[in-house]
Design a protein around this nucleic acid. Structure first.
Length: 221
DNA sequence: GATTGGATCGCCT
DNA sequence: GGCGATCCAATCG
């Protein structure tokens, strides 16, 4: 009777962890540097899966494992913000790889991208979902929910969980307060699902969304 | 100068 | 599954 649990309650029970922000990173984590980002955009999007996105802000180290990304290929890609030329908003994509591109969407949300390739290709990878790893308490406070599955399940949600703001636009992901890391020597092949991008509808959509198969934290199945 | 609609989210039915 | 919130870049005039 009254003991029957909702899906939300079961989810909360499933993912109880202790989540103080970290003071330092595991010694096995190595920073992703410019050569990683200065490559083919779809490759970068795919290879970012399984890495860790880390924010170093006053609240402490907060991190999530990348489980879902999308590639935006540049001026030849109608869905990419750079498709109709350089503007104040998209200017960072026309620069070097490894820079933060943050833009506001629907008047109230922000999305986080990292630029790829070189100045000759105005492309970027959108981060769509993370699996919470470090600083879960901070994420919960920023997001206003305790449910792990709702902390970083969507581009605007992960931005909020990591404390990313518009002020980070154009920052370097190598030297700035938001960076990517990977575990040294970890070469296990990840099972990756490839689909059309979310929220894009121009007809023949290329398969440029990547996520980890079966992962609980992706934004959409 | 005005209008339009978006790489979203969460609440409602 | 539908829809409103809420800003501003992009486009049109």
């Amino acid at each position: 009777m009254g003991s029957r649990k909702t899906e939300t309650e079961k989810d909360a029970e499933l993912w109880v962890v202790s989540g103080a922000p970290w003071k330092s990173l595991p010694p096995t984590w190595e920073l992703l540097t410019l050569p990683f980002f200065a490559r083919d955009t779809a490759t970068v999007a795919r290879e970012l899966l399984g890495t860790y996105l880390v924010s170093f802000l006053p609240e402490g180290i907060v991190a999530g494992r990348v489980v879902e990304t999308e590639a935006y290929l540049g001026e030849s890609d109608p869905a990419c913000h750079s498709a109709r030329g350089k503007t104040a908003r998209n200017a960072v994509m026309f620069g070097p790889a490894g820079r933060v591109y943050v833009y506001q969407i629907y008047g109230m949300h922000f999305c986080f991208n990292v630029t790829t390739e070189g100045p000759e290709v105005a492309a970027a990878v959108l981060l769509r979902a993370l699996e919470p790893v470090a600083g879960v308490e901070v994420m919960q406070k920023r997001r206003g929910t305790l449910l792990l599955s709702k902390l970083c399940n969507g581009p605007a949600n992960l931005v909020q969980a990591l404390g990313i703001t518009r002020a980070l636009n154009e920052e370097s992901v190598v030297t700035g307060p938001v960076r990517f890391y990977r575990e040294q020597g970890k070469k296990a092949a990840l099972e990756i699902v490839v689909t059309p991008r979310v929220g894009i509808s121009q007809g023949k959509e290329p398969l440029l969304r990547f996520y980890l198969k079966g992962n609980h934290f992706v934004s959409k199945k």
